[in-house]
Simulated assay, not measured.
Amino acid sequence: LDPYGNILHVLTMDEPHESIVIGASGQVEIDVLRECEHERQSALPFLRFTRLTEADAALRGFAQQHCKQRRDRGALIDLMHALHGHISYLTGSTAVETSAAEAFAGQQGVCQDHAHAFLACARSLGIPARYVSGYLLTDSDDHLASHAWAEAWLDGAWYSFDVTNCLAKPERHLKLAIGLDYLDACPVRGMRRGGGTEQMHALVEVSPQLKVQKQ
C-alpha cells in the first residue's frame, strides 16, 4: 500500500526484453445511491499543491469568481460546470506533464486536465481535494483507456466531481487509485535504462453485468 491506501504491484525486469504485457480483470459493484465516501484519515494532506495542480492568479480568480464566499457542494458543482465550459475537451491537446495552469490558459485539455484544474481551484479556496483515476461506464470511446475526476472534502466526506462529464455522482465510475495528482494515481508508471524507444498501448473494456434473478 502507498501512503494514500492504493494497492501497488511492482515489477522489476533486469533482463533484455521486447515487451511487457500487463493484464487485469475484475467485477465492480456500484451503489448508485451513495453520493459520498466517508474515511477516518485526515483530509488535510490534500490541501497541498503540486507542480501539476499549482493555482496561479488566473485559476485563483476563476475559483473566487464562481464560488465567492460559498464553500459548499453547490458552489463546487457551479465550479465544475464553469471549468467544463472554459476547458474544451480535445484529445491530444495536452500531455501528461501539462499543468493545470497551462491547460487553463490554453482552454483545451482532457479529463486529466479537467481534474487538475478543479483541484487547483478547490485547494485555492481552502477545500481539500484529491485526484481520482479509474474507468467510466459509457457508450463513448473517449474515456475507455483511462478516466480521471476529482473528489472534494465537504462536511466530513468525499464528494465526486467529474468535470469532463459534468457529473457530481459517481454512479458510473470505477475508482482505481487516488492521489495529489495524476502522477500519484496513474494506472501504470515506470522507468527504464538503456537504448531504444518505448511505447505504451492500453486496451480497456467496461461493460455492465446483468443480474439474473433466480425463480
Results as ranks from 00 to 15, higher is better:
Pro3Thr: 13
Gly5Val: 01
Asn6Ala: 01
His17Glu: 06
His17Asn: 06
Ser19Ile: 00
Ile22Trp: 11
Ile22Lys: 10
Val28Tyr: 02
Glu29Pro: 09
Ile30Lys: 03
Asp31Met: 07
Glu35Trp: 04
Glu35Gly: 10
Glu37Leu: 12
Arg40Ser: 09
Gln41Ser: 12
Leu44Ile: 15
Pro45Thr: 11
Pro45Phe: 14
Phe49Lys: 14
Arg51Glu: 12
Leu52Tyr: 08
Thr53Lys: 00
Thr53Tyr: 02
Asp56Ser: 13
Ala58Met: 12
Arg60Phe: 02
Gly61Met: 08
Phe62Arg: 05
Ala63His: 15
Gln64Cys: 14
Gln64Tyr: 13
His66Asp: 00
Cys67Asp: 10
Arg73Gln: 15
Arg73Ala: 15
Ala82Ser: 15
Leu83Cys: 04
His84Thr: 00
His84Ile: 00
Tyr89Phe: 13
Leu90Val: 15
Thr91Trp: 04
Gly92Ile: 00
Ser93Thr: 04
Thr94Gln: 12
Ala95Val: 10
Ala95Asp: 11
Glu97Ala: 15
Thr98Val: 03
Thr98Cys: 01
Ser99Thr: 08
Ser99Gln: 03
Ala100Met: 03
Ala100Ser: 07
Glu102Arg: 08
Phe104Leu: 12
Ala105Lys: 15
Ala105Pro: 05
Gln108Ile: 05
Gly109Val: 01
Cys111Ile: 09
Asp113Met: 03
His116Ser: 02
Leu119Gln: 05
Leu119Glu: 04
Arg123Leu: 06
Pro128Cys: 01
Ala129Asn: 04
Ala129Gly: 06
Tyr131Leu: 06
Tyr131Gln: 13
Tyr135Trp: 01
Thr138Pro: 05
Asp142Phe: 07
His143Glu: 12
His143Tyr: 14
Ala145His: 01
Ala150Arg: 07
Ala152Lys: 01
Leu154Glu: 05
Gly156Asn: 09
Trp158Pro: 02
Asp162Val: 04
Glu171Ala: 13
Leu174Met: 05
Leu174Pro: 05
Leu176Val: 12
Gly179Leu: 09
Gly179Asp: 10
Arg189Lys: 05
Arg192His: 05
Arg193Glu: 08
Gly195Ser: 15
Gly196Pro: 10
Thr197Leu: 06
Glu198Lys: 10
Gln199Gly: 14
Met200Gly: 06
Leu203His: 06
Gln209Val: 14
Lys214Ala: 11
